[in-house]
Design a protein around this nucleic acid. Structure first.
Length: 554
RNA sequence: GACCCCGUAGCUCAGCUGGAUAGAGCAACAGCCUUCUAAGCUGUAGGCCGCGCGUUCGAAUCGCGCCGGGGUCACCA
């Protein structure tokens, strides 16, 4: 980060001096091979064609013109077809190690987001059953993206959109009522399409415990309504509870029903009609999606008078804009993929910029048990809930595993591995590094070396004593953290954080293995303790973003 | 049939807006604890990056076409 900024500045000057204007193409990256230095740029090769010159010759010109401090840059070399490789001094890295210590738990935060008002919508499950494993992946992704957006300086609202009306809720009520009646009369008929899950029986049992047989003698419709209220309340409580176990807190629960009661739905239909984008056919209202560039028109109000999901979704997204969100992030499961074009087209027709809506589609989670796929279906009795998964492997492992893969890839979750070999989970590897550092710091303190607070003042530490390869490698890696956050955030790729933290942990474990921290040499010990503290800070901050704990002991 | 995602080591997957010699974990094999946490470290082995063509100085990465696997295509949400 610092390295890139520094070099970009200096090389820009050199380019300008030589009248090579293509500064916008100037980028730096980390070479894969260590021998190629700390950073490399391909600018000479990019300029070669336009200038009609040999890239190595251009590189040579640039190197001759470039001015850098010997104190910071130890080597500038031209290599291969025309790469310019830079090697930095230990002093340069150690100087910036101090900034980690100074910033502490804010290291990695930036203000590039400019307090942009941002909404992250995720989970958004209707209260018809417990959250599934798939919802868990969505919760982890959505919450972590929200964290990343906060760390980059966005003003973030976490939102959950739900619907407690309509057919599904009716089925929930009917199912609950039937299970309740069955507690008194086993022959009572269960609805054909009812929810089969055991959770319905449990809710029915609780109704019985609270109200006895009162609902049996009640008018059926009234009793069913009672069941709906009870079941909805119970399920929503359960959903919030399991989200709490995942460390997820929502700022807003947005009820779809409010779009109806406030007339927002009607308003959208009216506007579509006015614009000639809605028409009646077969007793239904159709959205003329073909006029919006889509392949077929879609029903927005059924012949029964009920809207399809598209209409409220469009109205909801318009409200997001009306509420002032400048960036809207929707995290959906792959089953929603077909609905997105309709909604975005509708939003665009209403005069809002669909570019401001970033839709993150995550693929499904497959649970493997004994080498076989665990079938999951909300309708059938056989499904693994998020609660059960957390019971089995713990919330930290659940979140970390869900965040290890790119969102667009299918995720295989091997329960046996997670269960039988939990010590080998990558999450423990990262957490162990943190706990190990904590242990070292405790040990140092007990040796009277210094108090942890004192380490935080880089001025009192001679960081130049950190000159071993493992030390330098670790420092370099730590300094990448802000850039990793940036790329994870703007690419909507939370797995970069998990991958990075694993690498940091590896670099630390290697350092630990090669060098003793607490030694008879007081100054060296203090410098290494500072490095430990900086590592601990980065690990802790990374875990915070991922929503997992960073334990002091394990 | 149309559209979306995936195809990289035996398995599960990283690989950033194209860069120089392809990465991790697990599984396998061989080593390392009198010293700050061995939940760790070191080493060995393992690859036509699905296939083909194209763009480029340069492709696992971008484009097109195939082939495989998964998903979605309601007046369900």
């Amino acid at each position: 980060m610092h390295m890139k900024r520094y070099l970009h500045e200096r090389l820009s000057v050199a380019l300008a001096t030589l009248n090579y204007s293509n500064v916008s193409k100037l980028t730096f990256e980390k070479p894969r091979v260590e021998a190629h230095g700390d950073l490399t740029t391909n600018i000479a090769m990019l300029l070669a064609k336009a200038l009609g010159k040999n890239p190595r010759a251009i590189a040579q010109e640039l190197v001759n013109t470039l001015k850098v401090e010997v104190e910071f840059v130890s080597a500038v070399e031209i290599a291969g077809p025309g790469f310019i490789n830079f090697k930095f001094t230990e002093r340069f890295f150690n100087k910036h190690l101090g900034t980690i210590l100074e910033n502490g738990d804010t290291f990695g935060r930036s203000s590039v987001g400019g307090k942009k008002k941002t909404q992250v919508e995720f989970v958004s499950a209707n209260p018809t059953g417990p959250l599934s494993v798939g919802h868990g992946r969505q919760a982890a992704i959505g919450d972590t993206l929200a964290n990343l957006l906060e760390w980059t300086g966005h003003d973030v609202t976490r939102e959950y959109y739900y619907n407690n009306a309509g057919r599904q809720m009716r089925m929930l009520a009917d199912s609950t009522y039937a299970r309740y009646r069955q507690l008194f009369d086993a022959s009572f008929v269960f609805p054909e399409d009812g929810y089969q899950g055991d959770y319905i029986r449990e809710i029915a049992q609780r109704i019985k415990e609270e109200m006895g047989d009162a609902l049996c003698s009640m008018e059926t419709e009234k009793a069913i309504e009672q069941c709906k209220v009870f079941a909805e309340g119970a399920l929503f409580d359960a959903i919030k509870a399991v989200l709490g176990r995942m460390g997820v807190q929502f700022d807003v629960f947005f009820n779809e029903d409010s779009l109806y009661s406030s007339g927002k739905i009607r308003e959208v239909i009216q506007e579509f009609r006015t614009m000639g984008l809605a028409y009646d056919q077969d007793g239904a209202v159709w959205l003329k999606a073909t006029s919006l560039g889509l392949d077929q028109d879609r029903v927005i109000v059924k012949s029964t008078g009920e809207p399809t999901y598209r209409l409220p979704d469009i109205a909801y997204h318009r409200e997001k804009f009306r509420r002032g969100f400048e960036l809207v992030v929707d995290v959906f499961g792959a089953d929603h993929i077909a609905t997105i074009p309709d909604v975005l087209a509708g939003v665009k027709a209403l005069g809002y910029d669909p570019e401001k809506v970033k839709v993150i589609i995550h693929q499904f989670v497959t649970l493997m048990r004994d080498g076989q796929q665990v079938k999951m279906s909300k309708r059938s009795a056989n499904f693994v809930t998020l609660d059960e998964l957390i019971d089995e492997v713990g919330a930290d492992a659940v979140r970390f595993f869900f965040l290890m893969r790119g969102v667009s890839t299918h995720l295989e979750f091997d329960l046996n591995l997670a269960l039988e070999q939990s010590e080998k989970n990558p999450v423990y590897y990262v957490q162990y590094a943190h706990a190990r550092i904590a242990s070292i710091l405790r040990h140092a303190e007990s040796q009277g070396l210094l108090s942890p607070d004192a380490i935080m003042k880089p001025d009192s530490v001679d960081l130049s004593l950190l000159n071993q390869p493992e030390e330098i490698a670790l420092v370099k890696m730590l300094l990448d953290f802000p850039e990793i956050i940036d790329s994870a955030c703007f690419g909507f790729e939370p797995q970069r954080i998990t991958t990075y933290l694993h690498e940091v942990a590896t670099a630390f474990h290697k350092f630990y293995h090669e060098h003793r921290v607490v030694t008879p040499d007081r100054n060296l010990s203090v410098a290494r303790l500072a490095l430990c503290q900086a590592t601990k800070t980065v690990l802790a901050n990374g875990c915070k973003i991922l929503g997992i704990s960073a334990p002091e002991r394990m």
